[in-house]
Design a binder for these strands. Structure first.
Lengths: 402, 402
DNA sequence: CCCACTTTTTTAGATGACTTTATAAAGCGC
DNA sequence: GCGCTTTATAAAGTCATCTAAAAAAGTGGG
C-alpha cells in the first residue's frame, strides 16, 4: 500500500550535474547553471562537492569573452569504475567501464552450465576479481556491479524470470548473492533496458526526450528512456516488443514480432527452403545460421536478402507501434543481431518509421545504430550501476509545458 | 536547450496529500504519513495548511484503538470548483466538478460552427459564466478551466492541431485567449489524456501503477498514467492507438486500428452490405448509425453483433500491444462509443488482453468501463485543471525497487 | 603600469520543506 | 486517579536551494 518515499529533496542534483558534465563534455559552471535551471551560486557548491569527491576536475579555461574566463570542468575518467555482467544463454560477457561510460576492459566467457547456484555465483565473482586485477583497478574505486539478463526479469527481487533458455539461473536470488559475495552494490535489470541506458550514457541519445533502444540477440526486446530516466510500468517489464502484433498470415491468424522478426524466426523461415539451406551450407546453432545469412546478403545473395528484409519490415512495424505509443524522438538498434546485420535493418526501419510515424509533422525520429552494438547490454549494465550509485534519478525533469 | 526547472522541493507534497485525502476517503494524519513516507510531524503541518486554506476539514474520530483516537480528514467538497470543456465536432460539452471530482453541473451545447475565432471564444466564455451563475457558484472558487479536444493537439502552445473535422478551431491560440477572457488558469490537452485523469480522480484506477484509458468517440485514442501522473512522450502525443497495426487484410496489406476498429470503421463495414443496411434502416451520421447497430446487437441481431465483435477484437489487439509496451495493470474504457456498446467491447477486450498479455504471470490487468462514460473527457478536463492547480505533479513517485 | 569594466565564481545569510526529539493531548483499563 | 498507548503538535536542526553582495580574474584604454 505504501507508495514509497516521496523524497523530493534527496541530492538528485549532484547526480544530475555529474551527468551533464559527463555528457556535455568540458563545460563551465555558468553553462551548467543555465542547463539545469539552478543558480550560479548553487552550482558553485554542487561542483565543489563533486571536486572534493574526486569525481570531476578542472580542465583549463574557456576562451576569453571580455570578463573573467570560465573554468571548464570534466569528469575524472578514472576516478570510479563499474562492472557490467551480461548473462546470456551460452556465454557471459563482462565489461569494466570508467566514469565516462567507456569500456576499459571486456571479457567473454562461456556460461557456467548447469552447476548449482552457489558454484555459479562463486565462479562469477571470481571472474570479476580477476578482471579487475588484470586491469590493475583498485576495487575501492568500483562503485558496483550491474547484472542483466534477457527476457522478463524480476527487477524487484533481482532474479531471472522467464522461461528462456537459461534454466540454470532461474529462481536464484542473483542480485543478493552477488552483493553478499562482493560487498558491492548490485543492480539487476533486463538487457534491453540496460542497452538503452548504455546508449544514453554513450551520448547516442543527446537531445532526445523520448528514446528507445531496440535490442535483438536471439530474441527481441526494447528499453525506453524518458528524459534519460528508465521508463518502468507496473513491473519493469515494459516494451515487450516481441509480443506486438505486426500483421496476419494468409489464414488471418495474427502474427506477433517474435514469430516473424527475430533471428530465430529468420532461420526458421530459411529452413522451409531446404534447397537454399543446402546451397548456403547453413549449419550450426540459430545464431550461426543467422550470421551466415547476413553474410550471404552482404555478398548480394537474393534469398538471404529477402529473408532479412522481410524480418526488418516486420520489426519496423513493431517499432512503429512503439514509436506511436511512446511518442519517441530517438531510436537506436543494439545487440548481436544488429552487429551482424545492422545496416539492412537500419535502412528499413528508418524509412518505414519515419514514413508512418503519426507525429512526424511535429518532430522526426532519429534512428541509428548503437555506438556499441555487440556489448551494448553489458556496457548498459555497468552504466546502470554508475547511474544508480552516482546519479540516481527516479523521476523525469520537465513538465508538459516545456 | 535548457531542460526546465529541476524544482525538486516545490510544495509538491501539499498537493499529494490533498490527492490522497480525496482518493482514500476519510483518513487520519497517521495513515497519510504512512502512505506518503513523510513523518507524522510533517504531516501535521501540511494538514494544517490545507485546513487553513479551507480545502479539507476534520470529520469526526476514527474508532478507538487503545490510544488517542485519530481525527479523520476529508476534502471540503464544495471548497473549490473547476470547469471542463470538451470540444467536439458537432457539440461542446461543459461540466463543473467539485473538489472530489464529482460533476455538479453539465451542459451539452451545439458547436459554434464556422464563426470567426474571437466570437467563438466570446460565446464559450459567456456560456461558462452562465453555467456558474445557474449553479450559484461563486467564480472566486473556480480554480480554472480545462479544455480538451480530440486527436493530436499542441499542448505546449494550447491549440488544436490535427486535420480533424474541426477546422473552425485550428490555428487559434485557444488556451491563451480563454485565459485572457476569463482571467482564470486554463489548461489544454487531448481528450483521451483527460479521460484517463478523470478516471484516476474518480477512483477507478485505485492501486494501479500503470493505467490506460481507451477513449473512443468517432475516433480512437488513449491516455496513459504512471503512478497517477500523465505520461507524455516527446510532444504529448502519446498512445496513438489508432495507428497501431492490428493485422493484415487478405492481400497482406497491414491494417491499423483506425481502419477497422473505431465507429467510423464499423459503419463503413456495414455499408458493404446494402441489404443489411436497408433491413436495419441505418441512416443519419456515422455515430447515429453506430448507435443503431449497437442497439440491434443488444436485441440479438447477428449481423450487428458480428460487426461489433470484429471491431472489438481488433481494438483488443491494439490494446494488448499497448498493455505489453507500457506494462499496464489497469485499463478503463471511456467515451461515447463505449457508452453505447461498452459491454460487448469490455467482454472481448478483457478476455483477449488477459489471455495474451505478456506479464500476466506476474500481475493481471483490471479492465473496466469508466465510471463516467459519456462525459469522461469533459470531467477529465476539469480534473486536469484541479490537478494542475492544486496537486501539481510533474514526476512519478516510486522507483524500480518498490 | 594602473584603472575601469565585464564576466565568473565564491561567500554569507535567509527560506522552506523536511527531519529528529521531545512534549502535550486524549482515550482505555485497572 | 494513574499508568499505558496512541495521536498530534512544538522546537530545534539539517539540507538544498535562493538572493544579495563581494571577490577574483581576465581585457582594453589611458
Amino acid at each position: 500500500m505504501a507508495r514509497g518515499r516521496v523524497s523530493l529533496s534527496t541530492g538528485t542534483s549532484k547526480g544530475l550535474v555529474l551527468d551533464l558534465i559527463r555528457t556535455l563534455g568540458p563545460i563551465s559552471r555558468t553553462d551548467l547553471a543555465a542547463e539545469t535551471g539552478l543558480t550560479a551560486a548553487t552550482m558553485s557548491t554542487v561542483v565543489r562537492q563533486l571536486l572534493d569527491e574526486g569525481l570531476i576536475h578542472e580542465a583549463g579555461l574557456g576562451r576569453p569573452n571580455g570578463g573573467r574566463p570560465v573554468v571548464l570542468l570534466e569528469v575524472d575518467t578514472s576516478a570510479r569504475y563499474a562492472v557490467g555482467v551480461q548473462l546470456g544463454g551460452e556465454s557471459i560477457t563482462y565489461v569494466v567501464v570508467n566514469l565516462r561510460g567507456a569500456v576499459v576492459g571486456r571479457l567473454r566467457a562461456p556460461g557456467v552450465g548447469a552447476s548449482e547456484p552457489g558454484a555459479m555465483i562463486t565462479a562469477l565473482v571470481e571472474q570479476i576479481h580477476l578482471i579487475l586485477l588484470g586491469l590493475g583497478i583498485d576495487e575501492q574505486l568500483v562503485v558496483g556491479i550491474g547484472v542483466v539478463a534477457p527476457g522478463p526479469v524480476d527487477v524487484a527481487r533481482g532474479m531471472v524470470f522467464g522461461p528462456a533458455h537459461m534454466e540454470a539461473w532461474q529462481n536464484v536470488p542473483l542480485r543478493d548473492l552477488i552483493a553478499e559475495a562482493t560487498g558491492l552494490p548490485v543492480v539487476f535489470d533486463n538487457d534491453a533496458t540496460a542497452a538503452a541506458l548504455g546508449d544514453f550514457w554513450g551520448g547516442a541519445t543527446e537531445g532526445a526526450r523520448a528514446h528507445a533502444t531496440v535490442y535483438m540477440g536471439l530474441g527481441l526486446g526494447a528499453g525506453v528512456l524518458i528524459d534519460g530516466t528508465v521508463f518502468r510500468g507496473a513491473s519493469s517489464n515494459t516494451a515487450e516488443l516481441g509480443h506486438i502484433t505486426v500483421g496476419a498470415d494468409a489464414s488471418g491468424r495474427r502474427l506477433i514480432a517474435e514469430d516473424v522478426a527475430d533471428p530465430t524466426a529468420v532461420v526458421r523461415a530459411a529452413r522451409e527452403h531446404p534447397d537454399e539451406v543446402a546451397r548456403l551450407a547453413l549449419s550450426g546453432d540459430d545464431f550461426a545460421q543467422f550470421t551466415a545469412l547476413a553474410k550471404a546478403s552482404t555478398r548480394g545473395d537474393e534469398f538471404a536478402t529477402g529473408l532479412l528484409e522481410a524480418s526488418a519490415r516486420h520489426l519496423a512495424t513493431a517499432v512503429t507501434s512503439l514509436a506511436n505509443l511512446f511518442d519517441l524522438d530517438s531510436i537506436t538498434l543494439a545487440g548481436p543481431a544488429f552487429a551482424i546485420a545492422g545496416s539492412i535493418y537500419l535502412r528499413v526501419i528508418d524509412s518505414q518509421v519515419n514514413a508512418e510515424f503519426f507525429a512526424r509533422s511535429r518532430h522526426g525520429i532519429r534512428v541509428r545504430l548503437s555506438p556499441q552494438m555487440q556489448d551494448a547490454a553489458a556496457v548498459g549494465a555497468a552504466t546502470l550501476v554508475l547511474q544508480s550509485e552516482l546519479a540516481p534519478r527516479t523521476m523525469g525533469l520537465a513538465g508538459p509545458s516545456d
